Computed example of a mutant assay.
Amino acid sequence: MRIRHIEVFYHVYREGSISEAARNLFVSQPSVSKVLRHAEDQLGFPLFDRRKGRLYPTDAGTELFREVSEIYDRVSALNRTASNIRGRKGGHLRIGVLPSLGFAIVPPMVAKLRAANPDASFDLSTLHSEEITTALLEKRFDLCIGFDDEFDDRIRCQTINAVGIALLAQRGMFDDNAKAISPDTLDRKEMIGLRDSGPVADRIEVYLANAGVEPVVAISAQTYYVAAELVKLGAGFAIVDGFTAKRFANEDVQSFALDRSPTLPFVAMTLAEESGNALVEDAIATLTSLFG
């Protein structure tokens, strides 16, 4: 089937009539009928039964529509992308960011970039630490923002700052007046743990092991925001990165520093071989000015 066949078949199937399909496609009814007949001739089987002026999909047509609808959606997405590219004037930046940094870092950065360059456009997505290298190498993103700088030499890492880890708990669970919590107080206490959550979770695990304490993981969550939301609902305490702790601390949830806790860098990452993208460099400079 050609793209035009797919387009006409899709609309005839969805609308159930040639007249409605023609209206949606902004063409004449004879034109739609001609393309539909040509599609059936090419395929070698009918797509619709024609009874009393109505079109009813054949079993073959229904089976084919499942595939056609996916292709049509892809073509529509392609056309939207082409339209977006055509309308860009001030550059376009595709940013991938860890979920825990998504709220704290990217919105103020993009807002400041837009204020300086109103014609710039942005595509923002979240990804996990283990996806960053592949995403950059496949050129799905121009810039990634995450924790740690232990990437291979194909990735250029620029450290913006460092962030610590913190303990989140409902008020009253620990001494509200404490400036920092000793890890000893966490031994054998039930907590909300993090699984498969990258370098921050790794640092937390090493920190607790070095302190010789072993909290009981009663609930295991994959993201910091789920863990923090569980804290807010009274399901236990959690150890998270400083950005997540700052975002969720309020009159009901308290953030505590942890004695002798580690810090880890948060970094801007690009392909080492890519250089000279002014919008990328502006974004990194903006990150540094806001959080450096």
Rank of each mutant, 00 (worst) to 15 (best):
R80N: 15
G292R: 01
N161F: 10
I160A: 06
T81F: 11
V280T: 07
K179C: 06
M269E: 01
Q254I: 08
S31A: 10
R66L: 10
A39V: 00
A209C: 00
F147P: 15
D202Q: 15
A104D: 02
A221F: 00
P199V: 10
R247K: 10
V216I: 12
R54Y: 13
L287F: 00
E130R: 15
T62C: 09
A21Q: 02
Q158I: 02
Q170H: 03
I6N: 06
Q222T: 15
D202V: 12
L168H: 03
G198R: 05
T244V: 10
I105R: 01
A249M: 06
P57I: 04
T81W: 15
L233G: 08
V200L: 06
F65L: 11
N210E: 04
L127C: 00
I3H: 01
F48N: 12
A120T: 09
H92R: 11
R156D: 03
R140A: 11
L258N: 03
V35E: 13
P265Y: 01
I192Q: 05
F237L: 01
A82S: 05
A209T: 12
V217R: 04
R88W: 13
Y13S: 08
N84C: 08
G198Y: 09
L137R: 15
L258H: 00
R23W: 08
E7N: 14
K52F: 11
R54I: 08
L167G: 06
R66S: 03
T286G: 04
Q222H: 12
E15D: 06
F243G: 07
L78C: 07
L101P: 06
G212Y: 04
D149N: 08
A115K: 14
D184T: 05
S19Y: 08
S69F: 01
M191Q: 15
A120F: 10
F174I: 12
G212L: 07
D149Y: 02
F26D: 15
T133K: 14
E67M: 06
I160M: 04
D148S: 15
I105N: 01
N84Q: 10
S33N: 13
D149A: 07
F147N: 13
F65I: 06
L258Y: 04
R247M: 12
D202H: 11
R50H: 08
M109G: 02
A77G: 02
Y224N: 15
P107Q: 01
L98Y: 11
V35K: 10
N277D: 13
R2E: 14
E150F: 05
R37G: 05
G90K: 03
A227V: 06
D41R: 08
G61Y: 07
I145P: 02
E251F: 14
L93I: 00
V213E: 11
S31C: 08
V213A: 11
V97M: 12
A135V: 14
